[in-house]
Design a protein around this nucleic acid. Sequence first.
DNA 1: AAAAAT
DNA 2: TTTTTGA
DNA 3: CCAAAC
Length: 336
Amino acid sequence: MRESRPVAVETRHLIQDTLPAISEGGAPAAEVSQYACQRRTTTDNYNVVFTDAFEVLAECYEFNQMDGRCLAFRRAASVLKSLPRGLSSLEETHSLPCLGGHAKAIIGEILQHGRAFDVEKVLSDERYQTLKIFTSVFGVGPKTAEKWYRSGLRSLDHILADQSIQLNHMQQNGFLHYGDISRAVSKAEARALTKVIGETVQAITPDALLALTGGFRRGKEFGHDVDIIFTTLELGMEENLLLAVIKSLEKQGILLYCDYQASTFDLTKVPAHSFEAMDHFAKCFLILRLEASQVEEGLNSPVEDIRGWRAVRVDLVSPPVDRYAFALLGWTGSRV
DNA sequence: AAAAAT
DNA sequence: TTTTTGA
DNA sequence: CCAAAC
């Protein structure tokens, strides 16, 4: 899409350090397409240098079970992401919420030197690096990663070689499809999967509603999974629909992994909080097999990959029809 | 860590 | 100063 | 109940 990046309008010495390859000269994106896919985190975030730093710190605090501080930096990052342009001076942070002394100090450092000491320290920390690798496996969170680290393990190969480690079903699939799941999902792949799910849903309930959501709906070219929401006009049948869809995917032979979570939605307990209500709807975390032949522009896979398919993480959510409309409005309004 | 509550 | 906090 | 899925 467009090659926007944080560029200070007038300041002299500013952040150019940490944004190497994608920067200068208007180099054609076509030449690095596959490579660009990986780093194309997306969007209209004009403050990547700061939000990346905050997210490193947030992750570090998460690894250390300091949930409050973690949340604080995630919020700080969220605030900066919502700005219409890149920060070019510390003064511009004065009116912003969720930014305290620490966050502003980090911003100041980056404005001045292009990097922040605290962040560099975290990035060079062996524990952080290792936990980062461990938690990159689907099904492995901070607790499990910490447990493995404490027992002296330092790489994914160590994990797989250790006979005493009992991987659960989710983790087994995380390792099994590690390469595929780690690779970015292209918009064409998301479209193909939307079609697959759409046809599956329609075969069960002809008058169903369905939409691609998440990053792709917001116009992203790449994502790390595909989020799809659908429902039936028949109120109360949405869970059955989701279960039927899962069964059909299995029958089609493309269901590689499924973690189904029944609805915990309680109208009396979650009235106005439309956002967190999402968590309570019937949903499932899937890994699906996507055939290359179904993707118009081809799979986002290395040329030497001759399988003709790849695994993709797919989330399906099936709210009651009245909530569906509300959720869609929220997503539509948030952009484009 | 930042903001709200005590 | 202590408790709570995301949507 | 925990951990993990976002």
